[in-house]
Simulated assay, not measured.
Amino acid sequence: MSTETESNYFNSYPPPKALQRHEALTRAFVQLQLEQNRRVVLVTSGGTTVPLENQTVRFIDNFSAGTRGASSAEQFLENGYAVIFLHRQFSLLPYSRHYSHSTNCFLDFMDEDPVTSSIVVRKEYQSSMRDVLRKYRYAKQNNLLLVLPFTTVTEYMFELRSLAHLMKPLGANALFYLAAAVSDFFIPRDRMAEHKIQSSEIPAHIGQHQPIQDDEVYTGYNEDQPGDVEKTEYKSKKLVIDLDPVPKFLHRLVDGWAPEGSMIVSFKLETDPTLLVYKARTSLQRYAHHLVIGNLLSTRKWEVVFVTPEEPHERWIRVPKSKRSKSISGSENQIGLAEKILHDQEHPDQPEEQQKEEKGESRGENEEGGGGVEIESLIIPELVKLHSKRIASRSTT
């Protein structure tokens, strides 16, 4: 993508109102980590919106609660990183996610002491909540976590560009972990409606401040009134949306925005197992970054695939069966399906078991233990190893 395309895009929109404040916070945060010679990861999380009107009532939203990003941020902190957490406003946050989106109301964790009337955590939750609270307090008190919100895809792009530039002094100690669900399509600002898009026709003189007859009052009905020919002008309308592709700024992040020597990791979410590895490979080749983590919507909580330029090129990471958490939306019977399809396509004459023996079992599959392990606890340690290897290779050149 050319710098001209970049300029045209960013010049078409005013900067987000919070951008200057976010830049000041990030500048101070990065300086503090530089003084400590600490690695810093920018974790993006949650979905972006695409407004349909300038005064936004309706918008297109990308599906994401922000679970991957929030959980990963906790794991990065556990592994000694400082975290800039760029997240969709009101999506899940590190540590508080354990309670903010719980199936129980937050108040269900609380009780009132009958003697002192003090509010206390119920006994059965104290141990787990104490552990989460200590980790959160440690991160905040030691200035290891900076939380910055966005909402629209344009706000996200402005924030990503600014934060990447501010991280330049970090060099190879910078890591970009792009887990946000970023919109692929948008409506350019000059084609956006100013006011709320109406679902029914409005009489032409409504906006001209002329008197309105009683039988012409716009009622907001979305359907034709049976037998009322006079009101057919108020019938509901189809909404046809013409979307443009969002400029692919990942190329600019790799080639211009990010610090020299930094590591850039993106995600590829698919629903079709036949496309997963192909799309991840294509993304890696197109943008020339360092790692694509592929995952299927139906199995994303239990398995991912690391796609890298170096051999073995694809490496699957799975939560062992005995440790898998339950998921209402997931399909355990699809675990391993994308890998099997890839094997059958590329090695039609080789039995699958033989291939597993040659390359070894996927990371985590032979481990034992109880249930409820989050896959991010397997992803991040492996990613830290790759980042360490990259830093070491640059220090020897």
Rank of each mutant, 00 (worst) to 15 (best):
A139H: 05
A139P: 04
K140V: 15
N142Y: 10
N143S: 13
L144T: 06
L144R: 15
L146N: 12
L146S: 10
L148K: 05
P149L: 12
F150T: 00
T151G: 00
T152S: 15
V153T: 13
V153P: 02
T154F: 01
M157K: 02
F158D: 05
F158W: 14
F158K: 08
F158A: 03
E159W: 02
E159S: 13
E159V: 02
E159Y: 08
L160I: 13
R161T: 01
S162P: 10
S162Y: 07
L163W: 06
A164R: 04
A164C: 13
H165M: 04
M167A: 08
K168R: 15
K168F: 02
L170G: 11
G171Q: 08
A172E: 13
A172V: 03
A172S: 14
A174V: 04
F176E: 09
Y177M: 10
L178G: 00
L178Q: 00
A179I: 12
A180C: 09
A180I: 08
A181C: 09
A181V: 11
V182I: 15
D184L: 01
F186R: 04
I187C: 06
I187G: 02
P188K: 09
R189H: 12
R189F: 11
M192L: 13
A193F: 05
A193Q: 12
A193G: 06
E194F: 12
H195M: 07
K196R: 13
I197G: 08
I197L: 14
I197N: 06
Q198R: 13
Q198F: 03
S200N: 11
S200H: 05
I202S: 14
G207Q: 08
Q210S: 09
Q210R: 12
Q213C: 05
Q213L: 14
Q213E: 14
V217T: 08
V217L: 11
V217P: 00
T219L: 13
Y221L: 09
N222C: 03
E223P: 01
D224T: 14
D224Q: 07
D224W: 03
Q225Y: 12
Q225R: 15
P226V: 12
G227I: 10
G227K: 04
D228H: 06
D228G: 08
V229C: 03
E230G: 09
E230V: 04
K231T: 13
